[in-house]
């Protein structure tokens, strides 16, 4: 019982550290692609420390509660995803709960953004919802493919099943590729950073966020990166113990990063059409195969 409590406390901290490391790493790697040095890896930490000490403006109770709800939603989600050996809450909620908990963070940001009564924010939120509608189709197909293949909805069993013999990526290559194609859309990075497009709608949902709101949204973004990649590694690469899990996450993240550094930003209708065309077809074919065999 005590191990469970400790792991409940420790896992979010690990997720935070890894998330910040990935954020700092991504800015460093992109800077190197741009032929410049780029900030130190610990820059996100410095930013958060500064933002916490900076005052800000608030548009009302819901404006604060929405941001808190979105961060709390992400923290909970981390507890449901087994990271290496630690899987504190994985027994009291399975993959279906994860899909539904993924909903809390955008909903929280949408509510607090709506309260900010700024059209840039509303446009950002409507784009985020449409983008989510776009990438949910392939995401759900690939999840269903894994679930029908392993005949279970619990993530722990999926991971255990992959321990014994080959990883799921060899049995279900198409859903894995589909999931990887929509990873930038889920993380909201370059080809799909339509939601917080600074040049078009002045950084979308974060237009009215000041000091501490920005700190919470950065932390939430760090958790979000950790969650999406950990889910990918658990589903398709059979997450091993702590170290191998982290190495796999690093590989997946760097691959995603290199892709996003060389693409301009898509318009929202192009993004939806893209998500519904190639990744969706791949995942659908994978699902049909998983269903028949």
């Amino acid at each position: 019982m005590i191990i469970k409590v400790i792991s409940i406390i420790v896992l979010p901290l690990i997720a935070l550290i890894i998330g910040f490391f990935f954020l700092g790493l991504s800015r460093k790697v992109i800077a190197r692609i741009h032929r410049r040095y780029g900030p130190p890896i610990s820059q996100p930490l410095i930013d958060v420390i500064k933002l916490i000490n900076q005052e800000s403006i608030s548009h009302g109770k819901l404006f604060d509660m929405g941001v808190i709800l979105s961060l709390a939603g992400s923290v909970i989600l981390v507890l449901f995803i087994p990271f290496g050996g630690i899987a504190p809450l994985a027994t009291s909620g399975d993959l279906l709960v994860i899909i539904y908990l993924m909903l809390l963070a955008p909903l929280g940001v949408a509510l607090s953004g709506g309260e900010a009564a700024n059209p840039n924010v509303s446009i950002g939120i409507s784009r985020k919802m449409m983008l989510a509608l776009g990438y949910e189709v392939p995401f759900l197909f690939s999840l269903l493919a894994v679930m029908t293949w392993y005949k279970t909805t619990s993530l722990v069993e999926v991971v255990k099943a992959q321990q014994s013999f080959l990883w799921a990526i060899f049995y279900l290559p198409l859903p894995a590729v589909a999931y990887f194609m929509i990873l930038p859309a889920m993380l909201g990075i370059r080809p799909f950073d339509i939601v917080s497009a600074p040049q078009e709608i002045a950084s979308g949902t974060a237009v009215e966020y000041g000091g501490r709101y920005l700190a919470l949204t950065t932390i939430q973004h760090a958790f979000h990166i950790f969650i999406d990649i950990a889910l990918f590694v658990n589903l398709f690469l059979g997450g091993g113990n702590l170290l191998t899990f982290f190495v796999k996450m690093l590989v997946v993240f760097l691959l995603g990063l290199f892709i996003n550094a060389v693409f301009p930003r898509l318009r929202i209708d192009q993004a939806i059409k893209y998500c519904w065309k190639w990744p969706a077809i791949l995942a659908l074919v994978g699902l049909i195969i998983a269903r028949i065999i």
């Binding site: 800077a31 780029g38 900030p39 930013d47 403006i57 950084s203 974060a206 237009v207």
Partner: peptide, 13 residues
């Protein structure tokens, strides 16, 4: 950006 100086879209941030 070496010194952490980043252009930002809105005065709030």
């Amino acid at each position: 950006e070496r010194f952490g100086v980043i252009p930002v879209a809105t005065p709030r941030q």
